[in-house]
Simulated scan of single mutants.
Amino acid sequence: MSPATAVASAATKALPQASRVFDVAFTSDAACVSEARRITRDFLGLWNVKGELAENIVLAVSELVTNAVEHGIGDLGLQVRYPDDELRIEVTDDNPAPAELRSADDEDVSGRGLFLVAVLARKWGVSEDGKTTWCVFRVPPRRP
């Protein structure tokens, strides 16, 4: 079991069953991106968030975590909260320079991550201290 999985598992056991939140810490390494996607997908399944919305949320997590790995400083954290009809993703690192939306040329192999997040999410932003990039998705109520 990886350290990130152990933290996510411990957090899940410590929270009441009705809580829809997880918080995971990662060492900044490219391998943590796939781990963040897997953990997010697993929790979305537990919370009955499925289909295209779930895939968009996982993609946003992937892009935000990748951005933190590539441009952040130190370890990073991922928190996902789903208390009501909105799901909020926050990725934190120690770099005070805020993430910025930029344009990428057709030939560029990277640089589109925040653009994708901006298109997919209801809203996104950066904390005042520049260390946390977040986005919010609306989750419509599921019919029984």
Results as ranks from 00 to 15, higher is better:
60 A>S: 15
60 A>C: 11
43 F>L: 00
18 A>N: 12
36 A>L: 04
86 E>A: 12
87 L>R: 04
56 N>D: 14
124 W>I: 04
28 S>F: 06
49 V>S: 01
120 L>C: 05
103 S>F: 14
16 P>L: 11
114 L>G: 06
107 E>R: 04
66 T>D: 12
101 L>T: 08
64 L>N: 06
30 A>W: 11
117 V>L: 06
43 F>H: 11
106 D>G: 10
104 A>S: 12
112 R>M: 14
126 V>P: 01
115 F>N: 15
40 T>K: 03
12 T>M: 00
28 S>A: 15
104 A>N: 05
99 A>Q: 03
128 E>N: 13
42 D>V: 06
78 L>C: 03
126 V>D: 03
77 G>C: 00
32 C>A: 12
42 D>W: 01
37 R>C: 14
38 R>K: 11
80 V>C: 11
128 E>H: 12
76 L>K: 01
42 D>N: 09
58 V>N: 02
41 R>V: 05
86 E>I: 03
92 T>D: 05
69 V>I: 09
62 S>L: 01
29 D>M: 04
108 D>C: 06
92 T>H: 08
18 A>R: 14
35 E>K: 03
51 G>N: 05
132 T>W: 09
66 T>F: 12
39 I>W: 02
34 S>R: 15
101 L>I: 11
56 N>R: 07
53 L>Q: 08
56 N>S: 11
78 L>R: 02
131 K>M: 13
43 F>R: 08
108 D>Q: 10
81 R>I: 00
38 R>T: 13
94 D>A: 10
132 T>P: 15
36 A>Q: 02
94 D>L: 07
65 V>C: 01
92 T>R: 13
100 E>D: 09
24 V>G: 00
122 R>G: 06
110 S>F: 15
71 H>E: 09
67 N>L: 11
130 G>I: 00
92 T>S: 14
136 V>T: 15
52 E>I: 01
130 G>H: 03
23 D>Q: 13
40 T>N: 06
56 N>K: 11
74 G>A: 05
24 V>D: 01
29 D>R: 10
21 V>N: 02
104 A>C: 08
78 L>D: 06
28 S>K: 13
94 D>G: 08
138 R>I: 05
26 F>H: 07
20 R>D: 00
44 L>T: 00
60 A>V: 03
26 F>W: 10
103 S>V: 04
88 R>N: 02
17 Q>R: 14
82 Y>S: 02
31 A>K: 15
19 S>E: 07
87 L>Y: 06
96 P>Q: 02
14 A>N: 08
30 A>I: 13
55 E>K: 08
115 F>L: 15
82 Y>C: 06
78 L>F: 01
93 D>F: 00
40 T>P: 12
71 H>Y: 15
121 A>I: 05
87 L>D: 05
65 V>P: 04
48 N>M: 12
132 T>M: 06
122 R>M: 08
62 S>G: 10
79 Q>A: 09
42 D>T: 13
94 D>Y: 01
11 A>R: 09
109 V>N: 07
132 T>H: 05
68 A>F: 10
121 A>R: 06
59 L>M: 09
35 E>W: 00
35 E>D: 14
26 F>L: 09
128 E>S: 10
29 D>N: 12
139 V>Y: 09
135 C>A: 14
